[in-house]
């Protein structure tokens, strides 16, 4: 039995001077699992993602990512785990405006030696970036050369997905990545993301307020149900 990608035990979190926001006794995300986490806005899901991604500090309890207790780690230790093992997709504005499509995709390889090694085994960062872009339907050379701000929102989200997946991360966190997309683009995006995540062997933590998406995943969890501090 291998360790789960994410395991939270007795997690407690409150912003300074505020009521407790998160109280999760037990939460697990198995390796390669595709999990749908439902939660309305304001339910603390962004905070939860921040804690799992290791950019927020101050949670009590145990936060294990890739079997490492990042809650006990220093800031730079968490940065290392994030750089090496995590891919993140935001709701929108995912891309660095002054970098090209390909440069945006290979950005994580700039910050993680592990992911750089991984792509070098597959023929180098640019080759891997183009391969990923091709897989998610952005194989047009002219499109890849374009300024990222000229891309449609759907295209931007797919570039972000390629970036999250490059270098074989263990976990992809997607925070409402489809809320700016129409339903056709949304379903196609989720399909592509799921497919690519299983291809690269990454677990997927997909967060949304839209319960109708739940059937597209292996498992669905309602944040309100596992969060004792809710209400």
């Amino acid at each position: 039995m291998t360790a789960p990608t994410v395991r939270l035990t007795d997690l407690r979190f409150a912003w300074p001077g505020q009521a407790p926001l998160l109280a999760i006794d037990r939460f697990e995300l198995a390796q390669k699992e595709r999990l749908f986490l439902r939660g309305p806005s304001g339910s603390g899901k962004s905070t939860l993602l921040g804690l799992i991604a290791g950019v927020l500090d101050g949670g009590q309890g145990e936060i294990r990512v890739m079997d490492e207790d990042i809650g006990q780690m220093s800031g730079s230790g968490r940065d290392q785990v994030r750089a090496d093992h995590l891919g993140v997709i935001f709701q929108m504005f995912n891309l660095v405006p002054y970098l090209s499509v390909v440069q945006n995709v290979i950005l994580p390889c700039r910050f993680s030696k592990r992911r750089l090694r991984q792509v070098q085994e597959n023929g180098g960062a640019e080759v891997e970036a183009k391969r990923l872009l091709e897989r998610i339907g952005l194989d047009d050379e002219a499109l890849q050369a374009r300024n990222v701000t000229e891309l449609s929102v759907g295209q931007q989200q797919r570039v972000a997905a390629a970036r999250a997946l490059i270098g074989g991360p263990s976990l992809v966190i997607a925070d409402e990545p489809t809320s700016a997309l129409d339903s056709d683009a949304r379903d196609r995006f989720i399909e592509l993301l799921s497919e690519e995540a299983s291809q690269t062997g990454a677990a997927l933590l997909f967060v949304s307020h839209d319960s109708s998406l739940a059937p597209l995943f292996d498992r669905a969890v309602d944040l309100a149900e596992i969060n004792g501090a809710a209400g």
């Binding site: 940065d79 994030r82 750089a83 935001f90 504005f93 405006p97 994580p108 700039r110």
Partner: peptide, 16 residues
Amino acid sequence: RREMSILRATGARPLH
């Protein structure tokens, strides 16, 4: 700020 948080999310450290 957005640019900074993208860089952070893709693995940039405070030093970067």
